[in-house]
Design a binder for these strands. Structure first.
Length: 374
DNA sequence: AAAACGGGGGT
DNA sequence: ACCCCAGTTTT
């Protein structure tokens, strides 16, 4: 039927007829079944690049409306390079992993300055751009330029772990290299773009994480995992998740003219450069611990006196590695200084929407607006 | 090698 | 509740 020899863990020696069938089945299926997606309208390297950054750890259905809006706002690489940073962040608001878009803007600026505005087509150069790792480099090279480079993401590791019966732990960084080597032996040199996208599309539509649709799969006859009945045990993924819980106190704090106090987060770390309501982590169990922590944080940071009047709500927000339990306080601020620090601002409720807020704090905005209507 | 880094959707 | 997602950067 087919031959599959594993010489070592990372070097495959696949029979040429197997490779040919693999390509034929995959490319035929992809051609017949690929979804119509906005980033497939053309091969503009900039648009392909934007889509790949958005798609990192993010589902296709989530990305579609963001991609439409983002490319309408910034139609060309130059538009993005010269755009105001906060406007760019606002366009990403709600997508998460905000460093993606800040790295992307850094990278398109470099393309303007170093590569005359043309996205580089060499593996070394493109991989050197901020935010472009091994996956994105291969994706852009193959999809935009037709270069036969592997683009190994979670889909590809799942699909190939099943088809080739690769039982390495995909949570380990070095395992990706094994799959890249497999792709190098399998990839179609006639149509690397469809090959890579076909692998991912198959992972999204057929070879899904839970209960893969093997009876509908074009690769079934070539799939060693199916042959051995192991499709549901693959890929092997070890390693655990631990989510720390942080107790936060946040303030809806009005100045004497009724405007609210907001703060811009630092340029590095969690939710970098996003705006937020004043908040701080606290330790303890009672209201006193909350007001003491929040009050002294604001008072010491902007030199004001703060009066926290009443609890205004409670919000939970879960990140991949962290859970925030936010106690919300409503109160008043008497500002004593001349000017607020540059990363603080007074805003009217109707101005809040101009600033990029993380979803956790959009929940606070929602509560404020509901309270005003009531 | 492991942790940091968002948010949403599926089961 | 847990897993996963067209991953990359920092530690």
């Amino acid at each position: 039927m087919y031959k599959l020899n594993t010489i070592s863990n990372s070097i495959f020696s696949l029979d040429p007829s197997y490779v040919k069938q693999f390509q034929d089945h995959l490319l035929t299926w992809y051609n017949d079944n690929k979804r119509t997606l906005p980033w497939r309208e053309n091969q503009d390297p900039y648009r392909v690049w934007v889509s790949e950054i958005m798609l990192q750890q993010t589902r296709v259905d989530t990305v579609i409306p963001y991609f439409e809006r983002f490319t309408a706002l910034f139609p060309t690489l130059q538009d993005l390079a010269y755009a105001d940073e906060e406007t760019v962040l606002k366009a990403w608001e709600g997508l998460g992993y905000y460093s993606r878009v800040q790295n992307l803007q850094t990278a398109v600026k470099e393309v303007c300055e170093t590569y005359a505005g043309k996205v580089p087509d060499s593996p070394k150069e493109i991989a050197g751009l901020k935010g472009v790792g091994p996956y994105t480099a291969g994706a852009v090279l193959s999809i935009a330029y037709g270069i036969p480079e592997p683009a190994v993401d979670g889909n590809v590791m799942r699909v190939l772990s099943r088809i080739l019966l690769i039982e390495e732990d995909i949570s380990k960084p070095k395992t990706r290299v094994i799959f890249e080597n497999a792709v190098r032996e399998l990839i179609s040199h006639e149509d690397p773009s469809s090959f890579n996208q076909g692998l991912m599309e198959l992972g999204a539509l057929v070879c899904t994480p839970k209960s893969p649709a093997c009876l509908l799969c074009p690769m079934r006859d070539l799939c060693k995992g199916f042959e051995e009945g192991k499709q549901n045990e693959l890929p092997i993924k070890l390693g655990k998740t631990k989510v720390r819980t942080a107790k936060m106190a946040a303030g809806i704090l009005a100045g004497e003219d009724g405007r609210l106090l907001i703060h811009k987060r630092p340029s590095e770390g969690l939710l970098a450069n996003m705006w937020e309501f004043p908040n701080t982590e606290y330790v303890g169990e009672n209201k006193n611990a909350e007001t003491e922590a929040l009050g002294s944080y604001v008072e010491e940071t902007i030199l004001a006196s703060v009066e926290l009047e009443e609890r205004a709500g409670y919000i939970e927000h879960v990140f991949s590695h962290l859970k925030w339990e936010i106690q919300l306080w409503q109160g008043k601020v008497r500002f004593k200084g001349e000017n607020l620090p540059a990363d603080w601002k007074w805003v009217r409720v109707d101005e809040l929407e101009k600033y990029p807020f993380p979803v956790s704090h959009q929940k606070i905005i929602r509560l404020i607006k509901e309270a005003i209507i009531l």
